[in-house]
Simulated assay, not measured.
Amino acid sequence: MNAIAGVLFHFIGGFASGSFYVPYKKVKGWSWESMWILGGLFSWIIVPPIAAWLTIPNFAEIISQSSSSILGYTFLFGVLWGIGGLTYGLGVRYLGVSLGSSIILGLSMVFGALMPAIYYFFNKAEGKHGIDYFFTENAGICVMIGLLVCVVGICLCGKAGMLKEKGLGTLSEEAQSEYKFGLGIVVAIVSGVLSACFNFGIEAGKPMAEVANQIWKAANPGQGEFLYQNNVTYIVILWGGFCTNFLWCAYLLLKNKTYKDYTNTTSPIGKNLLLCAVAGTTWYLQFFFYGMGESRLGNGASSWILHMAFIILISNAWGVALKEWKGVSKPTYTSIIAGILTIILSICIVGFAKTLE
């Protein structure tokens, strides 16, 4: 039951992450930086403490009593992840929701799943798997197969993107306006690698989550692991992410004088504010449910792979629903659908791996 619940929580988190950019696409008359930083205020600053307060009333005390080393590394990985998140927005802008998310999150999935395992191979820790786990244990081998299958799915999505670029002349003017494959692919690679730092941040801040877990278990004996233990860790990680994004967006707002967007009465200010709030809150929900899924599956490669795979799946489904692939050739459309189906298969394989442990 833990495995089923974990997969379900990761699906909900993946749905939130794969859907968060949709409200942004409805914002009218604002620059990218205007809407991105406003949404970020909700996802990084406003909502996380509220979620932590509702689930871990003494979260501030846990943070204040943590060592400077734990806080420093957790914050640092948040800063690096923030750069990945910042470039994620640009990657989706230039490549579209489905292709951009597939490449960025695919790279993040691979790095986020394997790098901690390499670290723990050389620095043994109780409850943590080294990279050898993926080649010697049945469950680990199954996880690795699932990861490779997902990479195949990502490659199919990437192939669809290249085919789309070749046939761009047949697409509508709106579809061509922001699609820049060359620039987008560079941004996507940078974003994918750095986005994996969120998982590293969870590892670095795990002692804070363990404190929350122990407090809850002492008050609720015999009820398993605390579902919301990671909510305290997220606050520190997201502080780092906010700093990166705030500095860059503030620079763009001043450079382009787009801070005037917030007082431009020719745009639907109230509606735009609401859409940004919805987008930012939805993005945070991915972390909220990731923590719940992790509490059932463990903070290993399986949790990270499932989470990323669900995000890629939902992002591509939105891409199809939003008609980002409308007007493309049959081979292009076949490639993106094949990519989606392959990613679904990878999710099933990784989910099954947890039953082998």
Rank of each mutant, 00 (worst) to 15 (best):
G91N: 12
W53H: 10
G280M: 02
L254K: 14
S17G: 10
L322H: 00
F287M: 05
S67T: 13
S43Y: 07
S67F: 01
G29C: 10
I141T: 01
G72S: 08
Y120I: 04
A204S: 14
L90Q: 01
A196V: 14
L80E: 04
G85L: 02
A52N: 11
K257T: 08
E178W: 12
A209H: 06
Y24W: 12
K128R: 15
A113Q: 07
G78N: 10
K25E: 12
G300N: 14
Y251I: 09
I145T: 13
T170Q: 15
W318R: 00
S64Y: 03
V350R: 00
S31T: 11
I37C: 00
G182R: 11
E126H: 10
A5L: 13
S31L: 00
I104S: 08
W32M: 13
L252D: 00
T233A: 08
A3W: 13
S335H: 02
T281S: 15
K25G: 02
G201M: 06
I312L: 05
I63H: 03
W81Y: 13
V211H: 10
V152M: 10
E210W: 00
M162Y: 06
A139D: 14
K128G: 01
L38H: 00
A317C: 03
Y21R: 03
V190F: 12
M35H: 04
S68L: 13
L171Y: 10
F288P: 02
A113K: 12
L275F: 12
H129R: 10
L274H: 02
S177Q: 15
C243I: 15
L41V: 09
Q65P: 00
F59D: 01
G158H: 01
Y73L: 11
T342V: 06
L86K: 08
C276N: 05
H129D: 14
I37L: 02
I12M: 09
H10Q: 15
A160T: 00
K128D: 02
Y262D: 01
L253V: 09
K164H: 08
L297E: 04
N2D: 14
K260P: 00
I46G: 02
P331G: 07
Q223A: 08
K26M: 09
G241Y: 02
L107G: 11
S295L: 11
F75I: 03
P116S: 12
M1P: 07
I45W: 05
K164G: 07
F198E: 11
V151K: 02
